[in-house]
Simulated scan of single mutants.
Amino acid sequence: MCAVCNQGEEDVLHMLFHCPFAQACWLMGPLALRTDELPRDLSIILDSLFKHKTDEVWTMLANSAWAIWRCRNEKTYGGKVPTFERFLSILNSVGVETRIAAAANKKKEVQLEVSNVCNSQYRCKVDGSWRSPWIGGLGFVVEDGELLKGYRAAPSVVCSPMQAEAVALREAIHFVKSLNLPSCIFLTDNQDLAKVCMELHPPVDADWRAYREINEVWRLLKEFDYECRHIPRSQNCVADHLAKVEHAADWMPESTEIISLREWADAHATSIIEFEDDMTGDIEEVTI
């Protein structure tokens, strides 16, 4: 008899997919799967769930099954009543362990033409703004020396200043990826964000209001061998200006298009004094 529901025979199929507790976990969990209609054949279930899935979905499926199994063991051997909150707690813990293992085993490709990302000619200055709950903005500008490679200003739905900064950095990374740049240094005036994003292991102690975004940024930085560094706020006025504009705007260059950063800044009402500070500041190293 199932130790969790006392309603069915305790076999692997029932415990992981057909027990009412397991069905609730699958349905309300990250994948929102209905398992009540799955067949009573484990091989068919595994084939239908895991076939043609991405690595990320496959990992979430495996982690969810393991979290359900852990809840069952706690009930069987410790008498602890399983709850959905406990399922999520175990699932998050297993997810962190999975990311740590993936980071440790990742084989980095050696690029002879780019020996150190820190020496990249491309820089992306990023900032996020937050005015009130759920109202914020993001802005970033991608630079190639004194030339403009692209920029974006857009509203964001965020609940805290840290989440606004993390969302801005995440969108900046996706933007740089779309430009197919071989490397890039991301610069933020939020020292806490820069420090946590450059940790060797997933930031398990990140601000809970931006936990998901910070962990996604951490994963993207490691995946593409990007760097994130801190700069003083006085050297980030262009991104700050973009993050606070009232309307969305972005620009990506045509293959033959060349725009001077100074000309662009003048056209967008950024003062020459501020812009010169923005151009001449040094990158501050973050000590981990």
Rank of each mutant, 00 (worst) to 15 (best):
A3Y: 01
V4E: 02
V4H: 01
V4T: 13
N6F: 13
Q7D: 11
E10W: 03
H14Q: 05
M15W: 00
L16F: 13
L16W: 08
C19P: 06
F21E: 03
Q23C: 06
Q23V: 04
M28T: 10
P30F: 00
L31A: 07
L33P: 09
L33C: 05
T35S: 14
D36K: 03
L38Y: 15
P39L: 00
R40E: 09
D41R: 14
I45D: 09
L46W: 09
S48N: 13
S48I: 02
F50H: 11
K51V: 01
E56T: 13
V57A: 01
V57R: 12
T59C: 08
A62R: 05
A65V: 04
W66Q: 08
I68G: 02
C71D: 09
C71H: 05
E74I: 00
E74F: 04
T76L: 03
G79W: 07
V81L: 09
T83K: 06
F84N: 04
F87C: 04
N92K: 14
R99F: 01
A101I: 05
A103D: 05
K106H: 12
E109M: 07
V110T: 12
Q111R: 15
S115I: 13
N116E: 15
V117G: 14
N119C: 07
S120D: 08
C124W: 10
G128R: 10
P133K: 08
P133Q: 06
I135S: 12
G137A: 06
L138D: 06
E143P: 03
K149L: 03
S156H: 04
S156V: 10
V157W: 08
V158N: 10
V158K: 08
V158R: 08
E165A: 05
A168F: 02
F175N: 06
F175I: 02
K177C: 04
K177P: 00
S178I: 00
L179N: 10
L181D: 12
Q191V: 11
D192K: 12
L193Y: 09
A194L: 07
A194W: 06
K195E: 04
V196R: 11
C197E: 03
M198N: 05
H201Y: 12
H201I: 09
V204P: 02
V204M: 07
D205F: 05
R209L: 09
A210K: 09
A210F: 06
E216I: 07
E216F: 01
V217T: 04
R219C: 02
E223S: 07
E223A: 09
Y226E: 07
R229A: 01
I231A: 06
P232C: 00
R233P: 04
R233M: 02
S234Q: 14
C237P: 00
H241G: 00
L242P: 10
H247E: 11
I258E: 14
R262Q: 15
A267I: 00
H268D: 02
A269W: 11
T270Y: 08
S271H: 12
I272M: 10
G281A: 15
E285A: 11
V286Y: 01
